[in-house]
Design a protein around this nucleic acid. Sequence first.
DNA 1: CAACTCACGGCAAACGATTGCCACGCCATA
DNA 2: TATGGCGTGGCAATCGTTTGCCGTGAGTTG
Lengths: 333, 333
Amino acid sequence: MPERAPTLRDVAERSGVAVSTASRALTRPGRVNQATADRVLAAARDLGYSVSPAGRALSSGRTGTVALVVPDITNPFFFGIVRGTQARLREGGYVHVLVDTEESVEAEERTLRTLRRSVDGMILAASRLDDESLAAWSREVPIVTINRSFPGLDCPSVTIDTPGGAVQGLEHLASLGHTRVAYAGGPRTSWSDGRRRSALAEASPRLGVEVVGLGPYAPQREAGAAAADAAVASGATGILAFNDLLAFGILERLASRGVDVPGDVSVVGCDDVFGADLVRPSLTTVAAPLEKAGHHAAELLLAALDPVHPRAGAPVELGTHLVVRDSSGPAPR
Amino acid sequence: MPERAPTLRDVAERSGVAVSTASRALTRPGRVNQATADRVLAAARDLGYSVSPAGRALSSGRTGTVALVVPDITNPFFFGIVRGTQARLREGGYVHVLVDTEESVEAEERTLRTLRRSVDGMILAASRLDDESLAAWSREVPIVTINRSFPGLDCPSVTIDTPGGAVQGLEHLASLGHTRVAYAGGPRTSWSDGRRRSALAEASPRLGVEVVGLGPYAPQREAGAAAADAAVASGATGILAFNDLLAFGILERLASRGVDVPGDVSVVGCDDVFGADLVRPSLTTVAAPLEKAGHHAAELLLAALDPVHPRAGAPVELGTHLVVRDSSGPAPR
DNA sequence: CAACTCACGGCAAACGATTGCCACGCCATA
DNA sequence: TATGGCGTGGCAATCGTTTGCCGTGAGTTG
């Protein structure tokens, strides 16, 4: 086994200064004489010194770590978010802890409880927590949310305007002559699902389209079969899916039932995740700026965590745009 | 801001015992009298006490954290691995730090350096490090590797027999009458790529198939175009791709060039990742037991980290199996 | 020349938990 | 009754770093 790692004391002794000076030489540029600092740096290098995160955390109360909590790491929706936050956090000198709560509220609570003391802050993407819990937690630990916000919540947030995106999708279908469109909705615990339903209900009269709300469905391929069946049964000629994963499942089911897409039914997804252009017919979908969202979230957290003057950034809302591919076309007849 | 979190001292005072007893009541079941322990537990609950990870780590030298290091988190190949390790580690009471090195050796080195002191051990999936560095690091910190192993490396490892899988793919193509097969290889830094090339070279005479080695290609869709072009130019009627991502790109390019799959050319991928059955034609591929691999890796690390009697598990090698779908068929003519 | 400022570096007290060692009291055994 | 063992719980050292406070000496200013 490796012998004891060198400590700051070793470095201090080797460079003939006090431990405090060594500490400052390594962390407070300018606080000590350049020549002294150089000696300390050299000693640290010679010894292969690296600071003990535990010691530092204990003493300073800061861990240099941020948790990113996502409901399902295998959902490509979160890729961009992971990439975006990771890039920005790394820049800011933070380490990234990625946690998958597997769509479970309990696992999310457990994660918060476990990690609360070991991180400086958290980014909660598409949190499944209810409003009160979330508000309570945001008082315990610095939090930034992605795709989740409500009046009583006082932490910074980044939201993606998927309701607006859903309306774009609806407009697209309306302009293709569809008059009856099914919305295959996401989980009840999804905040954005509720907002989308409202937005669609509001827009439908203006567009002269009847919107049939279906669901809730799990945001996964497997749920697509039920959604497709329900949509067909509803007599809709257009389907807006909660997300692309669900849309994939819908496409599969329609194909196996011999329903032609886009001849008989048009399908529009949401998020433009990996695979949307791979599937056949390729999927028309509402593209969300995921990497940018992650970037903004990290930015907000970094601002809130600033040791000298922490500040609460304003909420950010990011727009979406429709990517038209082959799964949508003119209404039949 | 939140007032100071309760410490073990607060708990001890409230329950009228010494700090040491409180500590033991919370972490050494049986070490203290049941009645005392109950008092401490109750006090801890009342106060909302939670142990400070920093304090514990400093004092005990253990962090209860394990890092999982992957080259590219957005590569679906790693999903199963993430899930598998996460499940097992959670069971073992460990927290999971997921780090994406973005295919960069430097980022991987940096990660190891940064995290060395903050985790108890690491799982390196498809490490891009060269042999010496890897061996050196494995002396510094407990490591388990996935898909990486070599004689001088003395840490436990889990490997997936993709070379064997590649041979299965080759046999499949041979049995369909293909006599000239292109292998679209992965990055030079990939250890398994080298092993696959050897395995294919060894098997090809026996099967009466000529194997043309191509590449290296990035294991990504974007690289598929070049690979497809090179394969077509080589006169091969079958293509074995380094992984499914590359195979997706190859399928796209072949389609856009008007090459019929599997009529003119058969394509076989590797890994059976998300999307392999989504793409059209659906992809014949070598399925790797990824979740199981993650599970084994976590198991090995847990064994090595056991505080009472740490033990080095034997290397694990997992088999693969071929999933035949629509992208492979009889050789033309 | 006195008074003041300032850069620099050391002292020592935290931070919060774990754990080796010891002491005490009780019971069983010789 | 003396001895030993055991169950229980306290004392205090320890882990490695940060940081408030202070002392020193050099330089500056009036």
